[in-house]
Design a protein around this nucleic acid. Structure first.
Lengths: 238, 238
DNA sequence: TGTGCATTTTTGTCATACCAAATTGAAATG
DNA sequence: CATTTCAATTTGGTATGACAAAAATGCACA
């Protein structure tokens, strides 16, 4: 047949397949949304066993390049920033278990959102302001309902990630809430705390309205430091 | 025990194994640095075929939880923020190929570093300042050597990521340079541009010395916007 | 005690088989 | 002609067995 001598004895055959598919996915030979060829077909065209094919597909799936539901043909996934986030999921979960892990991630979040509120204070347009106002109203209306308050809380913060109009940011917000929510939800939640948090949101919003980035950053740090203290107490993190 | 009837027919057996191993790795049953049991041992203790075991191990490897060099026993990996970054590598590479991908990532970087220089202006201690000064000197000395200038450029920025003393940040810097370097390196590099960039670094450093976060942010944005224009021209990105 | 080699494990790969679920296409139905 | 039904076929998930090559092991030897 054609030449297929690529067994380096140092590299796995499956890894070769993976890089080939990665290339084909990027250059469009394998179109987005279309399924991969059947495993038996792949093994023939590459001259490898099905074992190898399956391992390759498995890797592609874990990397987030294809969507491989059990029993269905793997489908080439739409390139999206959420897929990237998803790919780190398990590693991050492990990081959260190491000492200081939650703290480190939370601090990163504070730093990001501080930058975001500054940006919002400078660049938020009428549309964004309106959405923040709405989110804030929903937040206030939910003070007595801790579950709904939690959701509207997240929604308020999400608007901040939408202001810069960078599609990378919303998935990052999603990731933060996913990763930290299990800790977040354990902190004491009652109308009193909710009220404090609503007031904080309110101050952030006002500072943005006044186009005052310093005040906005200050208000946000105050807000998230308060939240962090709650989380810390719940976990007795140092 | 011997009974393991958990085949939902909706879930892959390998996925079950993966979650089991994930748990065992997190709770320490599988110690960091130690190899996983031999495949044949695993298949016996879980009552699955070797096919399944191999797929599970493959997934763990892709997820970055174990280090699986070919022909060697997979070793449980030290939890590290670099492993997380590594896990997103292939997805990010794909993102860089979509329209505006480089731009979005670069903007995220600008936002991050803007926050970092503000933080440095407020919180950098003598140690950090000394290292920045050293990095700046190295940078100046390399103006005539574009290759070395590139390296010292990166080193200067890296110090910014070290100031907040958050172990998440340096790997992020590493990731940025890895992902964007292929684009970065294609932009025109000559002593003249190097000089401009050195001057920019210098201004950033001075602003940090003066404890002036606004000036620092301004200098950094000017610097990175300049850099972005170079990259953009090289690629004709919109 | 340290070292080199033969033996045993163990991984990487292949081939084959079987079941159950998904897909397909034809037949039946409205 | 469009739609539904259902049986035949395809395909993915898993199991088993086999074999070469590389790694781990242990033993004899210096």
């Amino acid at each position: 047949m054609t030449e297929e001598r690529n067994q380096d004895a140092r590299t796995r055959a499956a890894d070769n397949l993976v890089s080939i598919f990665e290339r084909q996915i990027i250059d469009g030979t394998l179109a987005v949304g279309k399924p991969l060829p059947p495993e038996r077909e792949i093994m023939q065209s590459f001259g490898v066993s099905r074992t190898v094919v399956r391992e390759a597909v498995q890797t592609l799936s874990t990397k987030g390049l294809v969507d491989a539901r059990p029993r269905f043909r793997p489908v080439v996934r739409t390139p999206g920033y959420d897929a990237a986030i998803e790919a780190v999921g398990s590693v991050v979960n492990r990081l959260l278990t190491v000492p200081g892990g939650v703290r480190n991630l939370f601090e990163l979040r504070i730093m990001m959102e501080a930058a975001l509120v500054r940006d919002a204070a400078l660049n938020a347009d009428k549309n964004h302001v309106a959405r923040m106002k709405q989110a804030l109203a929903d937040n206030e209306a939910a003070i007595s309902d801790s579950q709904r308050f939690f959701e509207t809380d997240i929604a308020f913060h999400r608007v901040l990630y939408e202001v810069p109009d960078n599609p990378v940011l919303p998935p990052i917000h999603q990731a933060y809430t996913d990763w930290l929510s299990s800790h977040w939800t354990r902190m004491p939640r009652d109308p009193e705390h909710n009220h404090v948090n609503y007031r904080a949101h309110s101050r952030i919003f006002e500072s943005i309205l006044f186009r005052d980035p310093d005040a906005a950053e200050l208000a946000l740090r105050y807000h998230l430091d308060y939240a962090w203290n709650q989380v810390r107490q719940t976990f007795a993190e140092p």
